[in-house]
Design a protein around this nucleic acid. Sequence first.
DNA 1: CGTCGAGTTGACATAATTCAAGTAAGGTGG
DNA 2: CCACCTTACTTGAATTATGTCAACTCGACG
Lengths: 251, 251
Amino acid sequence: MGGLSISVLDFGIADRLQILVDLTPAERAAIEGLEGPVRNIPRQMPIRSERSPMQPLFALRTGVAISYMLLSDGSRQILRIHQPGDLLGAPSMPFATVQDTLLALTDVRVAPIDKTAIGALFEAHPRVAALFFMVAQMERAAAFDRLTSIGRTLAAARVGALLLDMLHRRRMVDPAVGSAFSLHLTQEVIADATGLTSVHVNRMMRVLQDRGLVERRNGDVVILDEVALARLAQHRKRYGGIDLSWLPSAR
Amino acid sequence: MGGLSISVLDFGIADRLQILVDLTPAERAAIEGLEGPVRNIPRQMPIRSERSPMQPLFALRTGVAISYMLLSDGSRQILRIHQPGDLLGAPSMPFATVQDTLLALTDVRVAPIDKTAIGALFEAHPRVAALFFMVAQMERAAAFDRLTSIGRTLAAARVGALLLDMLHRRRMVDPAVGSAFSLHLTQEVIADATGLTSVHVNRMMRVLQDRGLVERRNGDVVILDEVALARLAQHRKRYGGIDLSWLPSAR
DNA sequence: CGTCGAGTTGACATAATTCAAGTAAGGTGG
DNA sequence: CCACCTTACTTGAATTATGTCAACTCGACG
């Protein structure tokens, strides 16, 4: 099942960009050269804390990690649920201080990436720079989707949208994933990502199940009716695909 | 007062980046070369609609514009309230289809920017590419702030956070702005940006006023106690400023 | 065998929405 | 310059969605 494959899957930044374009050998080598020695981090361990001084970015190679912000009352908002191939910590890049906390949800393997190495990469490979910019904008669009979901839809729709998002992103890196995948997320994590409480997430999961949209077996989720779920979740498809026409030529 | 100056202020992309670094004459010329002939767009007129085929980006030169997504029930979520110097439509750049609607809130002046010109710019000026990437990440961090505000704080805090955000961004382009500024936003716009209803925004404005945090005269807002408002809004300062150390050298 | 984390469920409390009915301000045409 | 119209703002009462609190189940794990 998809769930198993994701936890084993080893995916770097270059592999992620390869989905978008055919990288030249020089480009691929330069991107792979960014990543420092891989670190193993056990589940529930912070990869990097907010408010700490500037730190490297990380490439998430295996496992699931989250980025979140803490509030003064102790609650947290999960900003992004990361999967292999994601660049962790990029929103903090412009700032001298880290803006968000990175936490390993499962055991993960991450490779540190130095900011200055990215600057050098931009200089040597303009097309890769454009790809980094593209990915940043795609992440921004994803954040807007979450904003819309949380700001303007009901709880059941928010939970449904999160499930669909997880499914689609896994499919992107592993087309073999069908309608079933193992979620690896506690209801509390879903709650902190959707702006709800874990109690209410539980109720909404039950509603989705009772309506025959999803099924749950132990930690796995099976999406039974993707179309109906997408309708309920007010899910927006990214029509028209990806536009690469504007990219500069490769080096 | 600050309000007047913003509506007159003419600010391009180059002027915005100039706040971050000293651009070389070649860099500045290249950035200014991106912008096509300026178009005047009257208030309440769409600049560009979602789901339409690929279109140019725009530099917002004067006025206030918003980006939003429509939902199937007719409600909308405002994603960003733009001010002069902002690049409009960037989140749609990776996609073949436009993702969000751009609407002029006041009379605005915008300059179209072709995607392919940005690709060429990345090739010729790597430091500018890095700056574009930085701005994209800063916008992403701003989206995360909104996400946290909407997902995990009460209505009064959400409204307060929006007011503070507007104030701080205006200060960035016009340091002369004090604690008073004219908001130019209807309560319905604030509602669509904060995930509330206009009725409830109205009540929250009253609460903020009754607590002595803000004052309202006609369309203007005066922030009376910025510290207390920031506390109520759970506002996060971007400690430590901007880190430019990793940028490649200028050309 | 006991503990711990996660999930589940019910009763109740509260924040925000909806509906409805106003008022105030600004713009326009006579 | 006034009458009118529109748009935004304001306020109260009733309703709904979600949160809070508390108790309980279940499975994993040592």
